[in-house]
Amino acid sequence: MKLDEFLTEGLISSVNNGLIQPELATVYAGNYLVKSLIAQAQVTQVSDAITAYKVAQASADKTAADQAQRQEVNRTSAPEDTLK
């Protein structure tokens, strides 16, 4: 594995595993680009992966919020249903 591949894959997996914040990965990618350790295409690859991560996180957050809301509705309506 080449250094540029290692750095790119490392940034992407670190974001996906929650080891570093997406914003910090962007900074690292920019620094690697300036130092010619990775190419612009790899910065784009990191950026695309970060976008996908954020979309997945937003979806997971919405799903969790929807589930919590359903549980709250079920919890508050349960006593009334059991009395019937």
Rank of each mutant, 00 (worst) to 15 (best):
Q69M: 10
Y53A: 05
K62G: 07
T51M: 11
L24Y: 14
V15E: 06
L24R: 13
V55W: 09
T76R: 01
S59R: 15
Q42I: 03
L33E: 10
N74M: 08
A49D: 11
S77Q: 11
G10Q: 01
Q57P: 09
A60N: 07
F6A: 12
Q71P: 00
T51G: 07
L7M: 03
Y32H: 14
S59G: 12
G18Q: 04
A64D: 06
V27T: 08
V15C: 08
L19F: 15
V43T: 02
E72L: 08
M1H: 14
M1N: 15
K35G: 11
I38P: 01
Y32N: 11
A49S: 14
G30D: 09
S59C: 10
D66Y: 05
T44L: 14
Q71H: 06
Y53F: 07
L83K: 04
V27K: 13
V34A: 15
N16G: 08
I38L: 13
S59H: 15
E80I: 04
Y32M: 12
T8D: 12
L37K: 02
S59I: 01
L83F: 09
Y53M: 10
A64Y: 13
T26C: 12
L24P: 00
S47P: 04
N74Q: 14
Y28M: 09
Q69E: 03
Q69N: 07
E80S: 08
K84M: 08
G18N: 06
A25I: 00
K35M: 15
P79T: 02
Q40T: 05
L83W: 05
A52Q: 11
P22M: 09
Y32C: 07
G18K: 08
D4M: 07
S13D: 14
T8C: 11
I50P: 06
A65W: 01
A29E: 05
G18S: 08
R75E: 10
L33H: 09
V27H: 15
Q57G: 12
S13Q: 15
I50N: 05
L33F: 11
T63C: 07
E5I: 03
A68S: 06
Q42K: 06
A78M: 08
Q40A: 14
A56S: 13
Q57Y: 09
A29N: 02
Q21Y: 10
A58H: 05
A64I: 00
A58K: 04
N31I: 00
Q40H: 14
I20C: 05
D61W: 00
E5C: 05
D4R: 13
Q69C: 06
G18W: 03
E80P: 01
E23P: 01
Q42E: 11
L83I: 03
K2Y: 09
E80R: 11
K62V: 05
G10A: 06
A25S: 13
D48R: 15
K2N: 10
G10H: 02
T76G: 05
T26L: 11
N17F: 00
P22L: 08
T44V: 09
V15Y: 03
V15M: 04
L19E: 15
S13V: 10
L24A: 12
T63W: 13
S14K: 10
T26R: 15
Q67L: 07
Q69V: 01
K54C: 05
P79Y: 01
E72C: 04
V43W: 05
T26H: 12
Q67N: 04
N31E: 13
L24K: 11
T82H: 01
A25W: 02
K2M: 09
Q67C: 10
